[in-house]
Design a binder for these strands. Structure first.
Length: 560
RNA sequence: GCGCCUAUAGCUCAGGGGACAGAGCGCCGGCCUCCGGAGCCGGGUGCGCAGGUUCGAAUCCUGCUAGGCGCACCA
């Protein structure tokens, strides 16, 4: 059943309930929440609803009796008469709808018309959404958990856009804090050491090899820094060293196919006075107070566990102070929803940030945090220790060298964001030929190959209107077509629930159904009208696979 | 101590209060005159424990057990 049919039938169900109540066949109660979905078993129809089940309680009637009454009124609905061939009541009281003949032809026409937009939809209320993710400190390369955040954030942004929202992708660069100072000091030490000076490496510095490499670059391009006073040289590295690191991070992410609309610099917040302004605003609202030489944000008034320091007793700002200013900046830009993807170690931070949003006068419900669980990387069956401070980690670049962009992205998106992810490097490398991503891509390449064959034989893809879709009656054909019809519903669910892993699973299901169809039925060389119909089914599969993979950020190859 | 997350097949994980609990991997066995065998077909074991709510619970509630994480004038 097509997605727009589902929407219409949903309204028809609501109308049927209201009419039954108006005519006294059902008692008055407010319409309950119900689902109208594509059932798992095709014996349960093309769409199934639990409306009678959930109405039974408030109606104080037996579910099947409610279902019978609803069926009577459903049959009078124009949408039902147009789209539904048969209504069954089954099990405890499900109402199962079977599509009328002709639905598949309409599906083909929809796919032809919508093309690479098939699966997309128009939100009832299009929102301006700001999605911030990755936002790793600019003190080292992208590591695996950043890669997961990049894959998830990118996919979610794609999903929001596909649902008709206006979405912007943003990366917050913490280039003004303590970590940036440490990075500058590390760079400074390496620079001087490379210049032949015997200077100690800072105790808390970043020991990675990449620091030496960047230091070497600066020694070549700016040899004169050796003669600068220490403070000036450190200031130089804090700006230009961090900038260089950001460039390298951008290159790494670009290789991963992830790009941002904006790289927001914390540095700019301080320069523009936004932090002071924000604190002044909060002060004017009575949200700040002084205690023991520090300035506190009374976040408990907005539900936080305890009040938080924003200006330390030494006069410097806490990280939170800048972050509040940052989020104020976001809201001033006019977004309807502000969504951050954070690591699980930041969950204690949500309360204070939401309190800040509220204290700033914005609706705290519009601020949303997706907590992305960590990745455990396994190598030789052992967890790989990943610590920037110890200088041991697996970078995004290394991961891409090992498993490639498509496999990495697909793997990161196979799990729910809230689920911990085990990523066995050896397994991913050794079993790459049996990776789900290859299985899906293979289905796409296979269809592309099919059409190359067809082309060579002088057979071209027919217009959807010329296809006799009713010829597709084999189980494998019908199962595949039903799955293709469910794509827009899947996209909607994945986006609304912020669960990109639904798409990877869906892609695997489509690929599996296509492979099965392909193995059981001859396409080229069958009776011409059947051949045309099967070619169109193949084409439709190709469109859905491509659109799905595009949302995931995975390529859909013509050949492998 | 307080709070959050998790517990489903040998392993890694899906499961929107519903109709017989699924997938991938691994394991075993079949299938290549023929559109790509990176494929197809078949094979089996499971909801941590105990209560409760409900017509109906893997799903919601309570308690317990076992893991993980967080509770900074760090970022």
């Amino acid at each position: 059943m097509l997605e727009k049919d589902r929407q219409e039938l949903r309204r028809a169900l609501e109308a049927a309930l209201l009419q039954a109540q108006a005519e006294g066949k059902l008692p008055a109660f407010s319409p309950p929440a119900f689902v109208l979905e594509t059932p798992k078993e095709k014996e349960h129809g093309d769409l199934a609803t639990n409306l009678a089940l959930v109405s039974a309680g408030p109606a104080r009637m037996a579910p099947r009796q409610v279902a019978e009454i609803l069926r009577e009124y459903l049959e009078q609905q124009p949408a039902v008469q147009e789209l539904v061939g048969r209504i069954e009541i089954a099990g405890p009281g499900f109402i199962n709808l079977f599509a009328r003949e002709g639905w598949l032809a309409r599906l083909f026409r929809a796919i032809e018309t919508e093309g690479d937009r098939y699966g997309h939809s128009r939100a009832d209320k299009p929102l301006r959404i700001l999605l911030e993710y990755v936002s790793a400190n600019p003190v080292g390369p992208m590591v695996v958990v950043n890669a997961r955040a990049a894959a998830v954030g990118d996919c979610l942004a794609n999903l929001y856009a596909a649902l008709g929202h206006q979405v912007e992708r943003e990366y917050y660069v913490n280039d003004a804090g303590h970590q940036a100072d440490l990075f500058a000091a590390s760079l400074n030490a390496r620079y001087l050491q490379l210049a032949g000076r015997d200077v100690p490496f800072p105790e808390d510095g970043y020991p990675g090899e990449y620091v030496k490499e960047i230091a070497a670059e600066f020694l070549r391009s700016h040899p004169e820094l050796v003669d600068l006073p220490e403070q000036e040289r450190l200031a130089f590295f804090k700006i230009h060293g961090v900038d260089r690191m950001v460039e390298l991070q951008q290159q790494e992410l670009a290789r991963f196919g992830v790009r941002f609309d904006r790289w927001f610099r914390e540095r700019d917040l301080h320069r523009s006075g936004a932090v002071e302004d924000t604190l002044a605003y909060l002060r004017a609202q009575g949200a700040l107070y002084d205690r023991e030489g520090a300035v506190w944000f009374a976040s408990t008034r907005w539900g936080d566990d305890k009040d938080r320091v924003v200006v330390k007793s030494d006069g410097s700002y806490t990280y939170l102070a800048a972050d509040i200013a940052y989020h104020r900046d976001k809201y001033q830009r006019g977004y309807d929803r502000v969504i951050d993807i954070w690591g699980p170690d930041h969950h204690g931070y949500i309360g204070r940030m939401r309190a800040a949003v509220a204290a700033l006068g914005y609706n705290p419900a519009s601020f949303e945090v997706i907590l992305l669980q960590l990745v455990t990387l396994l190598k030789d069956g052992q967890p790989v220790r990943m610590s920037k401070r110890a200088g041991e980690f697996v970078t995004l670049d290394e991961l891409l060298d090992e498993v490639g962009k498509d496999a990495a992205r697909f793997f990161f998106l196979m799990r729910s964001p809230s689920a911990h992810l085990d990523f066995d490097l050896d397994l991913a490398r050794q079993q790459s030929e049996q990776n789900p991503v290859y299985y899906v891509q293979y289905a796409h390449a296979r269809i592309a190959s099919l059409f190359r064959q067809a082309e060579a034989a002088g057979v071209s893809l027919p217009r959807a209107a010329e296809v006799d879709a009713e010829l597709l009656t084999e189980a494998e054909e019908v199962d595949l077509a039903r799955k293709l019809a469910a794509f827009p519903e899947e996209v909607k669910l994945a986006g609304e629930r912020q669960e990109p892993h639904r798409l990877t699973r869906y892609a695997m299901e489509v690929a599996s159904l296509y492979h099965s169809f392909y193995a059981h039925h001859r396409i080229l060389g069958s009776e011409p009208r059947l051949q045309a119909a099967r070619l169109y089914l193949s084409h439709a599969t190709r469109v859905v696979l491509r659109n799905c993979l595009t949302l995931l950020g995975v390529s859909a190859p013509e050949k492998m």
